[in-house]
Amino acid sequence: MTSDGMPPSTHGPGQTKALLAGSAGVRMRTMTARDQILAALPDIEARGADGSFSPQDVVDELRRRRSNLGESTIRTHVVSRMCANAPDTHARTYDDLPHVSDGRYRRG
């Protein structure tokens, strides 16, 4: 881990290797784009009055965390792949983030 608690290396587009401590010692785990977004949500939600956030809020937080994800990858995940009420236009989708109002999302 780097001094700010972020994973030190990358592994493929949209993935980051993270050190995880467990009873069997330290092991490496790949953090997907979804993993990185979900990990950032508590900090993003804490800054908003109602717990909702925009795709730009997620982009800004992941930039602050020095994520290797591109802006378009982050936005695609928030508004489509992870959005509970978006049309299924990807091979794999998740019901993580309901779209609650114009450009606003919330963890489901």
Rank of each mutant, 00 (worst) to 15 (best):
T73D: 13
S72M: 09
A21C: 10
A46H: 09
M31P: 07
D50A: 01
G70V: 05
A33M: 13
L41I: 15
S52A: 15
L97D: 05
R64F: 14
A24M: 04
Q56C: 00
G12Y: 13
M6F: 12
V79S: 13
G14V: 06
C83V: 09
G108F: 01
P55I: 00
S23C: 08
Y105D: 01
R66G: 02
T10F: 09
S9K: 03
L20H: 09
H77Y: 15
L97C: 12
E71L: 11
S72G: 11
G12F: 13
D50T: 01
T93D: 05
I74M: 04
D4A: 07
A21K: 10
Q15I: 06
F53P: 11
G22L: 04
T93F: 04
D96A: 15
L20K: 03
D95I: 02
S101P: 06
P55W: 06
S80T: 11
K17T: 11
G5A: 06
R65N: 13
V78T: 03
H77G: 02
P8S: 10
S80V: 11
M82L: 15
A39R: 02
R92E: 10
G70E: 14
D96M: 14
G25M: 01
F53I: 07
S72I: 00
P8K: 09
F53Q: 03
G14P: 14
D57Y: 09
Y105Q: 04
I74W: 12
C83T: 06
G48Q: 08
Y94T: 07
T2E: 03
R27Y: 08
R65F: 09
M31L: 14
G51I: 08
L41C: 10
P8R: 05
G51S: 07
G70W: 09
E61Y: 10
R75M: 08
R66K: 00
M31K: 10
P87A: 06
I37D: 03
T2N: 02
G48A: 14
R66L: 02
T32A: 00
A39C: 11
R106S: 14
D35Q: 00
E71N: 14
M28C: 12
P98Y: 08
E61T: 08
K17D: 11
D96S: 15
S67C: 12
D60K: 05
G22K: 03
N68I: 10
Y94I: 07
T32Y: 05
T89N: 13
I44N: 07
T32D: 00
D57S: 11
P13H: 11
N85W: 05
A86N: 07
L62S: 03
D95G: 02
C83G: 08
T10W: 07
A40L: 02
H77A: 04
Y94S: 08
T73Y: 09
Y94C: 06
G25N: 05
F53R: 01
A24K: 01
V79D: 06
G25V: 01
T16P: 10
D50H: 05
E45V: 15
H77I: 00
L62R: 02
V78H: 11
